[in-house]
Computed example of a mutant assay.
Amino acid sequence: MGARAAARQRRPAIPLTRAGELHILRDETPDHDAAMSNPNFKQLNYGWNADPNVPEPEVVVNGAEVRLTFYLNHWAYEARENEKGTLAFRDCSLWRLGPTNDEGWYAGQCRYSISAPAWGEFYELLGEDDRRLVPADWHKLGPLTSGLRHFLFYLRDETFECFGADWKFERSGASI
């Protein structure tokens, strides 16, 4: 087992939110009863992607900014071996790094398995969606307001999601 894989196995699990908190989040969601059942997926990662084997995602939260850092796929895209990329989301209200992996997605265990175009991509979900708050492991940073965008990134062993105002991609400190 490589050093990156061994380090990944030692990573502690992210604590889940209380079940009651999810109920509060649903009550705070604007127009949650008028949600659409099939959101549209806009792919956002062109020219880069996470390592398909061991991306080792790490989340850092600073106020309402959420940063997801991961190893880049240097086999299929222009990247150096062991180079990291970071997605920075501003004005976030909710985020999660959940357990659905590629095997679960292909087995239909993901709430978007049927509607998402492909596994392993970074998307913005457009339109309302009655399934957006189904996972119970959301971390709440603020109220979920109608102007926030829903971002979703399918990684090898996890799924990252957040609701934020905007995003940017950085690689080794340089913006792309």
Results as ranks from 00 to 15, higher is better:
Asp137Gln: 11
Ala76Trp: 04
Ala136Thr: 10
Trp95Cys: 11
Ser37Met: 06
Glu83Ser: 14
Asp102Trp: 09
Leu148Thr: 00
Thr86Ala: 15
Val134Asp: 15
Glu81Ile: 07
Cys92Tyr: 07
Glu161Cys: 11
Pro39Leu: 07
Arg149Ser: 04
Arg8Pro: 00
Leu87Arg: 01
Gly85Gln: 09
Leu141Met: 10
Leu155Glu: 00
Thr159Ser: 04
Glu78Asp: 12
Ala19Gly: 02
Trp95Phe: 15
Phe151Met: 02
Gln9Trp: 05
Ile24Trp: 11
Ala13Leu: 14
Ala79Phe: 06
Pro143His: 15
Glu65Ala: 06
Arg90Pro: 01
Leu133Gln: 07
Leu25His: 09
Asp91Glu: 10
Asp31Trp: 12
Gly98Thr: 10
Gln9Phe: 08
Ala76Thr: 07
Pro57Asp: 11
Leu152Tyr: 08
Thr86Phe: 04
Arg96Asp: 08
Cys110Gly: 14
Phe169Gly: 01
Asp157Ala: 10
Leu148Tyr: 00
Ser175Val: 08
Ala19Met: 07
Asp51Cys: 15
Gly2Arg: 11
Glu161Arg: 02
Asn62Ala: 13
Leu72Glu: 10
Arg96Gln: 13
Asn49Cys: 14
Gly147Asp: 15
Leu97Tyr: 03
Tyr112Cys: 02
Val134Asn: 13
Ile14His: 11
Arg10Phe: 10
Leu97Val: 05
Gly108Tyr: 09
Asn62Gly: 02
Trp119His: 14
Asn40Arg: 12
Leu68Glu: 04
Leu97Cys: 04
Ala7Val: 03
Lys140Tyr: 13
Arg132Ala: 15
Leu133Val: 07
Arg96His: 12
Ile24Glu: 14
Arg18Trp: 07
Thr159Trp: 00
Phe163Trp: 15
Gly164Gln: 07
Asp51Phe: 13
His23Thr: 06
Ala118His: 08
Ala34Met: 12
Glu121Val: 04
Asp33Ile: 03
Pro117Thr: 08
Gln9Lys: 12
Gly47Thr: 08
Ser113Tyr: 03
Ala3Ile: 04
Pro30Thr: 05
Val61Ile: 05
Ser172Met: 09
Pro52Ile: 05
Gly142Asn: 09
Glu83Val: 04
Phe89Ser: 00
Gly2His: 09
Pro57His: 00
Lys84Trp: 09
Met1Glu: 03
Leu44Asn: 03
His139Gln: 14
Trp105His: 11
Arg11Leu: 10
His23Arg: 04
Val61Ser: 03
Arg67Lys: 14
Arg80Met: 11
Gly85Pro: 08
Arg26Lys: 15
His139Asp: 01
Leu25Ser: 08
Lys168Ile: 03
Phe163Asp: 01
Trp75Cys: 02
Ala165Leu: 13
Arg171Phe: 01
Lys84Met: 15
Leu44Glu: 08
Thr145Tyr: 09
Thr69His: 06
Leu72Phe: 09
Met1Asn: 06
Phe153Arg: 00
Ala35Ile: 02
Ser172Glu: 15
Leu87Ala: 05
Pro143Cys: 11
Asp166Met: 04
Glu170Val: 11
Pro52Ala: 02
Pro30Met: 10
Glu124Thr: 06
Arg149Met: 01
Pro15Phe: 06
Arg111Phe: 10
Ser175Arg: 12
Gln109Lys: 14
Phe89Glu: 00
Gly104Met: 14
Lys84Cys: 13
His32Lys: 09
Ala165Val: 03
Gly85Asn: 13
Glu56Tyr: 15
Pro135Ser: 12
Ser115Lys: 05
Thr100Pro: 02
Glu103His: 01
Gly127Leu: 06
Trp48Leu: 07
Leu125Phe: 10
Asn45His: 08
Gly108Asp: 05
Leu87Gly: 03
Trp119Asn: 02
His139Val: 05
Val134Tyr: 13
